[in-house]
Amino acid sequence: MQIKILGPGCPKCHKTEEVVREAVAEAGVQAEVTKVTNTMEIAAAGVFGTPAVIIDGDVKVVGKVPSKEQVKSWLGK
């Protein structure tokens, strides 16, 4: 599973990364978590704002910090 967290470095983006990493660890799933800070790469994802979370190419959330439970549901847990 490939997870990308889009955000150039604001507090909400950091929080999102923290939540996603915790959810992945607690769910016990194999996932590669990548933080994307390059604005061109973020723009290429077609998102209106950040933070955003992409799992296996599917954008799951835009402009909000997801809850850990939300992330776990995206992980199938």
Binding site: A45, G46, V47, G49, A52, V59, V61, V62, K64
Partner: peptide, 9 residues
């Protein structure tokens, strides 16, 4: 995906 999710959120 990014556009549709952005419009929803």
């Amino acid at each position: 995906s990014g556009f549709v999710r952005s419009a929803k959120d």
